[in-house]
Design a binder for these strands. Structure first.
Lengths: 141, 141
DNA sequence: ATAAACCTGACTAAAATAGTCAAGTATCAA
DNA sequence: TTGATACTTGACTATTTTAGTCAGGTTTAT
């Protein structure tokens, strides 16, 4: 059980963006250099973030990206959702119409994974981008 | 972010075993049939569970497996640990001596993943096999 | 005009997953 | 004592996912 790099990079990039947000659009090139993430990969990630209206793009020279909402209104859960970083604990939840493991009924652990998903999602729904930036700054001081 | 089948199967199999535990050893063949899990795969899983002393084996005819401790003393965290179902949220935690992403310092999201891991592990440390069996039975009644 | 920066889709190497397969050994029951 | 049942182990493999790369655009400030 682990997060993918895509989810982690998305959070890193948005934290980076949030810090410089009020001045100018931030270019992916800058984020790439500061955070050590491949530029091509960042472009894929930001394409998704834009479609979910988490960021806005500014094209052309001096362009880049800006947050589309206030940092406190962007929750971790929104970010992960945008880049398809889902908390799908197990396959049996994929098509819930059928049962689990090709059977007609739910598997005996089904309730457990439901609980686990809720537990994790609660964490993601509480944390905002603002929290993360503040917290990171404080710990460094 | 998802669990692997190995972790899920381990829990399913142990719940199955816990229900019949006080009577006779339970054969993997029975578990395989009841839970719809490949027998060969179960053997791999139980080999690991045995090494971590979560189950005991009884060889020969009428043999099978029994729990090695009381169901209430087997926590989810023990089971996942036995089958290498780790909660390693991100790679940057792998070798913590180095920084993240090949850099010298920790990445800006590092504290976040620490928090997340603790959050998830708390859940696993609370739940015992006994809880799971009871809960599953109650919900079905 | 031209360079910076966004935009898109196709492609791919490497790793992880979810098993299968083969060849055993131990024990009980008839 | 011989079969059947069931545990034991290690090697192997197809499939899927991940984590990118690559190539070719379009847009806009200067």
């Amino acid at each position: 059980m682990k997060l993918t790099s895509k989810g982690r990079y998305a959070v890193m990039a948005l934290m980076d963006l949030a810090r410089f947000n009020n001045i100018n659009p931030v270019s992916l090139r800058d984020i790439s250099l500061r955070q050590g993430i491949s530029l091509d990969y960042l472009e894929q990630i930001f394409s998704k973030l834009r479609k979910k209206e988490i960021v806005q793009s500014v094209r052309g020279t001096q362009g880049g990206y800006v947050l589309n909402r206030k940092a406190k209104d962007i929750k971790l859960t929104n970010i992960f959702d945008a880049v398809d970083e889902k908390v799908k604990t197990v396959q049996c939840k994929k098509d819930s119409k059928k049962g689990c493991n090709g059977k007609a009924t739910k598997c005996i652990t089904h309730n457990l994974w439901d609980e686990l998903e809720n537990h994790i999602n609660n964490f993601f729904e509480e944390k905002s981008l603002e929290d993360l930036v503040k917290n990171n700054f404080e710990k460094r001081v």
